[in-house]
Amino acid sequence: TFTSIVTTNPDFGGFEFYVEAGQQFDDSAYEEAYGVSVPSAVVEEMNAKAAQLKDGEWLNVSHE
């Protein structure tokens, strides 16, 4: 299960995956970082959410 939350205070020191406002979700980078295949429906969902981000916001993507 993939989830996401919007934050204005990303923790770059941890093992977190963020999408910056104005960027798209990079499923290849996510797969490389976590060894998890990302279904195309999830990629579309995360890109739709990322498109709604305002300046200074980040989308924190995770999975269980």
Rank of each mutant, 00 (worst) to 15 (best):
S28R: 15
L59S: 00
T8S: 10
V61E: 02
V6I: 12
F15K: 15
H63S: 05
E31R: 13
Q24E: 11
A29E: 07
F15Y: 12
E20R: 09
S28G: 12
A50K: 01
V6E: 05
Q24M: 14
E44H: 11
V6Y: 00
G13C: 15
T8G: 06
V6C: 08
A48R: 13
E64N: 13
N60T: 12
M46W: 08
E20K: 12
Q24P: 11
D27Q: 15
E45N: 06
F25P: 01
A33N: 08
V38T: 03
E64C: 14
Q24V: 12
A41W: 15
G22R: 05
A33M: 15
S40R: 15
V36N: 03
D27W: 15
G13F: 12
S4Y: 09
Q52C: 11
G35R: 05
Y30W: 08
E44I: 12
N9K: 12
L53C: 03
D26M: 06
S4T: 10
F17H: 04
S62R: 15
L59N: 01
T1K: 15
P10H: 06
D26T: 05
G22I: 02
T7H: 03
W58T: 02
W58S: 03
G56W: 04
V6G: 03
F25W: 04
V19D: 02
A50Q: 00
N9R: 08
Q23F: 11
S62C: 10
V43D: 02
D55Q: 11
H63N: 06
E45D: 08
V38A: 03
F25S: 02
L59K: 00
H63R: 06
A41I: 12
P10Q: 04
D26N: 12
P10L: 04
G56S: 04
W58K: 02
D11F: 11
E31Y: 14
V61K: 01
D11P: 08
T7K: 03
E44Y: 01
D55G: 08
F15D: 14
A29D: 05
E20L: 01
E20I: 05
M46T: 03
K49R: 13
L53K: 01
I5T: 15
D27P: 15
A21L: 05
V6P: 02
T8N: 09
G35L: 05
Y18C: 03
W58F: 10
D55C: 09
S4G: 14
L53P: 02
T8V: 10
V42W: 05
D26I: 07
A48S: 10
N9Y: 09
D11R: 09
N47M: 06
A33H: 12
G35M: 06
F17V: 04
K54R: 12
E44Q: 12
N9A: 11
N47F: 03
E16H: 13
G35P: 01
Y34L: 08
V36R: 05
P10W: 00
A50T: 07
E44L: 09
D11A: 09
N47D: 05
P10G: 03
F2T: 08
V42N: 01
D26K: 05
M46A: 03
T7W: 00
D26F: 05
N9T: 14
G56N: 08
S28A: 15
G56H: 05
I5C: 15
Q24W: 12
V36L: 07
D27A: 15
A48I: 12
Q23P: 00
P10D: 03
A41L: 10
T3P: 08
V19Y: 01
K54E: 08
T1H: 15
N60C: 14
H63I: 06
S37W: 10
E45L: 10
V61W: 00
D27Y: 15
T3D: 10
K49H: 07
G14M: 07
N47Q: 07
A33I: 15
Y30M: 04
E45M: 10
K54I: 09
G56L: 03
I5S: 14
A48P: 01
N60M: 15
S37V: 13
M46C: 05
V38K: 00
V42A: 05
A48W: 09
A29S: 07
F17T: 01
D27F: 15
A51T: 07
A29Q: 10
E57D: 04
T7R: 00
N47Y: 01
V38E: 02
E16P: 05
E45G: 05
Y34A: 03
W58I: 01
S62E: 03
E57A: 01
H63G: 04
N9H: 11
K54F: 06
V42H: 03
E16F: 14
E20A: 15
Y34M: 09
G22Y: 05
V19W: 02
N60R: 15
A41H: 14
D55H: 09
V38D: 02
W58L: 03
S37D: 07
S28T: 13
D11K: 11
S37A: 13
S37E: 11
A41V: 11
S4R: 00
H63M: 07
A50D: 01
D27H: 15
Y30V: 03
F25G: 02
L59F: 01
E31K: 12
V6T: 07
A50Y: 00
E16T: 08
P39E: 04
S28Q: 15
F15A: 13
P39G: 04
A21V: 08
E57Y: 05
T8W: 07
F15I: 11
V6H: 00
E32H: 13
S37K: 15
A51D: 05
F17A: 03
A48F: 10
F12W: 11
N47T: 09
E16C: 14
F2I: 11
D26C: 07
V36W: 00
H63A: 04
E31H: 10
F25H: 02
V6L: 06
Q23G: 14
K54V: 09
G22Q: 06
E57G: 01
V36K: 06
H63D: 02
T1S: 15
A50E: 03
Q23N: 10
S37Q: 13
A51E: 08
S40F: 09
Q23I: 04
Q23L: 08
G35T: 04
Q52F: 09
V42R: 02
A50P: 00
Q52E: 11
Y18M: 04
E64I: 15
Y34E: 00
V61Y: 00
A33Y: 13
A33K: 15
E45Q: 10
V38G: 00
V19F: 03
E32A: 14
G13H: 11
A21P: 08
F12E: 05
T3R: 08
A41M: 11
P39V: 03
N60E: 11
S4D: 08
S37P: 12
K54T: 08
F17L: 02
Y34D: 04
N9C: 14
P39T: 05
F12D: 05
S40W: 08
G14S: 14
S28F: 11
E20W: 09
G14N: 09
K54D: 05
G14A: 11
G56C: 05
V36G: 02
A48Y: 08
A41K: 12
Y18H: 05
Q23V: 06
E16G: 15
